[in-house]
Structure formats: structure tokens, C-alpha cells
Design a protein around this nucleic acid. Structure first.
Lengths: 212, 212
DNA sequence: TCCTTTCCCGTACGTTGTACTGAAACTAGC
DNA sequence: GCTAGTTTCAGTACAACGTACGGGAAAGGA
């Protein structure tokens, strides 16, 4: 029988609430006070379930990273497809990923699948790890751009206006002719072609490496 | 003739001091108070030269990004070579780059050179911009790993020990055989081969894109 | 000398993460 | 029904952060 006062919450529940806040309002909106309010709890109560905020972020990434085969597929391309789907669902992930400690079963499983997909290359272990890290970084970059582009089309006219305003002077100076041309084309971005770019990136990373 | 009280500092000088702090002790050590102390100035005096801390970071990136042909070379490979040299000299750059507003002549010139290197592809403007953004993201990822690896070899045994400790249980469970094998190989990282990986990445990004 | 302009910077406020501390709620043993 | 032991809850408090405000200081022009 469990002794002591019974917990009013659970760790996964708290992490889920944190994820919900970050999903809806971004990482900056996720403060310990805000999270406590959302859970009708005292701020310090959270620290019973979570060592500190870093730990909370670690758990958020871990909890969100449950493998869903419907998102991905086989091989490295399946892995990056899954990563992209994850980051599109949780736009805070690219910003949160650096400095994370990834020791949970979901992230380790994900790493294991990546290593499995690299088995046939015969590369040394560290080289495999490097490739997986670079791929994750690539997906994070790609999705960050993707999200910004998507937002730019809809709202955010204020920020865009500021940006253009600040660049206009420089662009009109004639010192940056190619940049000027791109700006004049407007922001009619072509379809992102994630699949194509990702598979070329994978092929490039797997090409005959001298270190192998 | 300039009227009013003469400035005790200059903006480039303040930005240079900020860069020095970040170089020596990392981005976290760079606070407005610390910077003021370093300059023998009052904290609020800094705000005469800089709108806010975001602006300071923007200027740091801009000021550090002066083009030095000795670091780079021609084409995209020269560009990423230069970026890598820059980030190795200023390890805070990968972390600082997201959310920056890059409107200064150095960054615009860098962008213009990138567009020039992509001229021959005939790609639409937004596609070129995307390629440049992805390349920068790749270099940032690569250098981040590189720096961590380099540090791991020398100091930081504390952090490594913690990490291994936390992973040991999971690894020993037998659920992650490939990960276990990599861990057992030790961290004898092979030479990073930046040139090789970077040129393959460029080739991949430039490959026949359906959107082009 | 006085006015205007510009920069300097001490004080102060709101926000953040979290250490400390004691109250509260439960079980186990008597 | 106590009492002791154990665990969680949460209010208070503090240090550090970015920075708004406003008055004082130092220069040139009239």
C-alpha cells in the first residue's frame, strides 16, 4: 500500500498540460506559474513531479515522441517523415530540441530504429550517430522554415511589413541586385517538396565517406 | 558640430564587448549588467546604443559576419566553409541564430553571395532562399555537434558520467542492442570530414528539384 | 549666461525559476 | 483512537533578469 498523502496529479498528466500550453501558445507562454494555474495546483507542487524546468522539457519531448507507424515508414526516409509530422504537430519542438537530454524509451527507441536503418552501411558507431543528429537538425530547420512560411501567408503582416521596410533601403541601394530580384518576385513559395529534399539529403549523408 | 553630451562609447565597441563575453563564457553569461560592468558603464547607458537585447544579438551576428575570403572560397562550398569557421570561432552562434533579424550589410552581402552561387540553377527565388537557409541550418547543426565532441574529449567528464549513468540501465535491459553496441565502442569519433559531408549535402540540395 | 540637445545611470517594477518550510493527508503499528 | 512516520501540497521569499522612467550631467549655440 502506498504510504503518505496521495498525489493529486501524475507526471504524464502534468507533462501533457505543458505540451498543450506550448502547442497552443508557444514555448514562451509555458511558465511554471502558468502550468500550475492550468492544473489548479500550487506552483511548487509541480516540483514534486519534475526536477526542474529542463526536466519538464525533456519529458515533453519524450512524451510527444511516441512512435506512430502511420506517420513514418521504413528506413531513414520513414524516420524523417515521422520527425517532420511530429514537429508540425508541435511547432515548439525545433526550438526545444537543443540542449535536451534524451534518455526515455521513446527517444531511445527512435535512436535504435535509426541505427537499424544505418546497419547496412557498415559505418562506425559515432559516424552513425552523427548522421542521425544531422538528419534531425535538418528536419528541424526545414520545419521551422515551413512553419514560418505558412504563418507568413496568413497573419503576421505587421512583422513582414517591418522586415520589408528595414530591407528596402538596403535593397534599393543597388548593392544587392540578386536579393532585390528575389524580393520583387514576391513570397509565392513553391510547394516544399520535403520528400525530394529529404531523400537527396539522406543520399548525400550516406555517400562514400572517407571516415567509413 | 555634434551637440549634446558626447558619447562615452560607440555601438561597435559595445557589441564587441558583448561578443567577447559570449566567446569566453557563453551566451548565458551575457547579461546587460555583466556587459555594463565590463564597459565600466551604467546598465541603462547601454540602451542608448542598443534598442534591446534582441537588437544587441542581431548586431553581434552582423558584426561577427564580416566576410573574410581567407576562410572561404568560391561557390556554396566556400560559403559553408566560411560559416563553419565563423561558428567555430564563436560557438554561441548556432544557438543565437534562430529568431535573429538579419538586415545589416554583412549578412545581406552573405545572402547576395549565396544567391550568386545559385544563379546557374535557374531555381525560383524562394527555392534559393530555402536552400541557403537549410545550408546554414546544416552548418549550425554540424558545428554544434563538433564543439560538443571536442569538449567531451577534454573536460565535462561530469556531464558524460551522468549521461552514461542514466543510459546504462536502459542499454543493459537489452531492448536497444544497436545502441548498446555503439556505446560499447567508446567515443572514439572519426575525423569529422566536414568538406565531404558538406559537398554531398550541397549536391543533394541542388539535385533536380521537381519545383524547379 | 541660458537654452537646447544629447547622453549617463540610479531606482524601481514585473517576471522568471526555484529553495525553504511547514501544514496537510494518508498508512502502519499499538 | 492514538501516535508516529511518510509523502505530497503550496505559500512565502529570494536572486537574477530585461528594461521603463526620470532626473542629473555635459556639451554647443545664441
Amino acid at each position: 500500500m502506498p504510504r503518505g498523502r496521495p498525489p493529486a496529479h501524475t507526471r504524464p498528466q502534468i507533462v501533457a498540460a505543458a505540451i498543450a500550453i506550448a502547442d497552443a501558445e508557444g514555448l514562451d507562454a509555458l511558465t511554471m506559474r502558468r502550468l500550475a494555474t492550468e492544473l489548479d495546483a500550487g506552483v511548487m507542487s509541480l516540483y514534486t513531479y519534475v526536477r526542474d524546468k529542463e526536466d519538464l522539457l525533456d519529458q515533453m519531448v519524450e512524451q510527444v515522441s511516441e512512435f506512430d507507424p502511420a506517420d513514418g515508414g521504413d528506413g531513414l526516409i520513414g524516420l524523417v517523415r515521422w520527425q517532420r509530422a511530429l514537429m508540425l504537430r508541435h511547432p515548439w519542438m525545433p526550438a526545444a530540441l537543443p540542449n535536451r537530454r534524451l534518455g526515455g524509451p521513446n527517444m531511445l527507441g527512435h535512436l535504435e530504429r535509426g541505427l537499424a536503418a544505418l546497419e547496412h552501411t557498415g559505418l562506425p558507431g559515432p559516424a552513425k550517430m552523427e548522421i542521425l543528429a544531422l538528419l534531425t537538425g535538418f528536419v528541424a530547420s526545414y520545419v521551422s522554415n515551413e512553419v514560418v512560411q505558412a504563418r507568413a501567408g496568413v497573419t503576421d503582416t505587421q512583422r513582414i511589413a517591418e522586415h520589408v521596410e528595414r530591407l528596402r533601403e538596403a535593397v534599393l541601394s543597388g548593392a544587392y541586385p540578386r536579393l532585390a530580384k528575389v524580393m520583387s518576385e514576391g513570397a509565392t513559395a513553391p510547394p516544399p517538396n520535403f520528400e525530394a529534399i529529404a531523400s537527396r539529403m539522406i543520399a548525400g549523408l550516406l555517400g562514400d565517406r572517407p571516415g567509413g
